[in-house]
Amino acid sequence: MTALTLKNLYKSFGKVDVLKEINLEVEEGEFVVFVGPSGCGKSTLLRVIAGLEEATSGEIEIAGTPVNHMPPSKRGIAMVFQSYALYPHLNVKENMALALRQEGQSKAEIEDRVAEASRMLSLEPYLERRPAELSGGQRQRVAIGRAVVRQPKLFLFDEPLSNLDAALRMNTRLEIAKLHRQLDTSMVYVTHDQTEAMTLADKIVVLRDGRVEQIGSPMELYNNPANRFVAEFLGAPSMNFVPADWLDGEKDQEIGIRPEHVSIGEPGRLSGTVIHVEHLGGDTNVIADIGGETPFTVRLFGQYQIEPGADVQLGFADEQTYRFASDGSRVR
């Protein structure tokens, strides 16, 4: 059974179309990530699924039931917000229990579910505290716990990690992945961070300006991007683009080369001058000026001593390049 189906979904605020022709199926137990640049409509899409905004047209089904006219609390979803959105006047336990009390669950059942969720998220020491007395990471875990206790058919996450620092972000990311394995419930996750998308997703949905650009598994999208936008958006550092006629290609076309597919050394197919070198320990990023509008990035594995100002030759294999027409579409 599909956990979520979107058919021809449109959403506009007044005259502005924010979501256009969204079609999507999320299988049961699947982890789907929406990525896209800021303002592309990810949060809006999530809020439409949650029922916090009404779709202008199109159909939404959750676990086979059309929910277009159902209030958020009846849709069988739970949502985790970027700003945690904990109830400031309730302690951790009450925060988690509120939705269950609203549903009219029995006291024992509420106790059970809260206890289980707080064990899963290591929240037991904080149950009596107010949100104001917790750190950012703990607050986010409470927010996740509040979603877990409801035992929803579908979890919705709106950039849950973007307020956390780098180390905590990594930990919480692992925790969310673990949670997904344990619960085996479908999750829809919004982020603009492509690392989060690549590491968590079974399926990535790339959005741009309210349209779906491509849907697929992380490796499908990485190895086989449908267009220049997806190619540039996924992968860090992002793909290099050079005019095709520099490499005996057709005029107006562009060749895309991932930084990790480039080697330095003679004989090369392009030449340039090093302008900056980033030493990351495991990797070395070499940024070179090859005469194009944007600098060319090379990702070398291991440590290299290369000085800015040095002239370098860049080599790569044709099978590992991508060809794009001037409108951004892929030429195969």
Binding site: L52, S73, A78, F81, S83, Y87, R146
Partner: peptide, 25 residues
Amino acid sequence: SDDLKNAGRIDGLSEYTIFFRLVLP
């Protein structure tokens, strides 16, 4: 915060409860 009010809606609070219990304080 809109998120707070929306969290209330998802948890099944009525608009009156959201107003009196979340927003007013």
